[in-house]
């Protein structure tokens, strides 16, 4: 057992954990930050994605101790960080996922949203190809990804003051508004 000092969602926290524990385990079972999910536990699915210094990383194959001195952002961090920066409600990416139906079972989604967040922080208005590339390490079994792409497009468009494409199912007349 060792004491780790981790910077998580803007807080510096000290936590005791065995050195063979991964970041995923420490977040979930020591810090109670269970928003980070585990789907394969060996780097295959992306459910455990967190941001380290703003970049998406697989926490299930990342030793917790190697995250010391870095900034870790988990899904739980987005809303408070958004609010601390003067925003209201959830991070616009989270909100957009909800409004576009991208959240089915939700189990892939904390990883998915963090990958999307890293993309949107880097590319103001990503194309669908950009989105496909950025999410290509996050498996989703429910959505067929379509509404996830739409959520990313919508978040980007709203920020840039552009009109997102209407989904195939949306009736011509009605406003696609959730």
């Amino acid at each position: 057992m060792q004491n780790l000092r981790l910077n998580i969602n803007g807080d510096s926290v000290e936590v005791g954990a065995p050195s063979h524990w991964t970041l995923c385990e420490v977040l979930r079972y020591r810090l109670g930050l269970t928003g980070t999910k585990q789907g394969c536990d060996k780097g295959d699915c992306g459910a455990c994605t967190v941001l380290i210094d703003g970049r998406p990383v697989l926490s299930c194959i990342h030793l917790a101790a190697l995250a010391e001195d870095k900034e870790v952002t988990t899904i739980e961090g987005l809303r408070p960080l958004h609010q601390a920066a003067g925003g209201e409600g959830c991070d616009p990416v989270q909100d957009s996922f909800d409004r576009c139906g991208a959240l089915q079972c939700g189990f892939c989604q904390s990883g998915m949203i963090l990958s999307a967040k890293a993309l949107l922080d880097e590319v103001p208005v990503p194309t669908e190809e950009d989105a496909r590339a950025a999410l290509s390490g996050n498996l989703c079994r429910c959505t067929g990804y379509t509404q996830i792409f739409q959520a990313i497009e919508r978040a980007a468009c709203e920020r840039a003051g552009l009109e997102p494409t209407k989904p195939a199912w949306a009736p011509e007349s009605s406003e696609h508004e959730a």
Binding site: G46, I52, P56, V57, L58, S115, S136, G137
Partner: peptide, 9 residues
């Protein structure tokens, strides 16, 4: 190689 998150580390 692999996927985007993996290439980050």
């Amino acid at each position: 190689i692999a996927g985007p998150q993996l290439r980050e580390v």
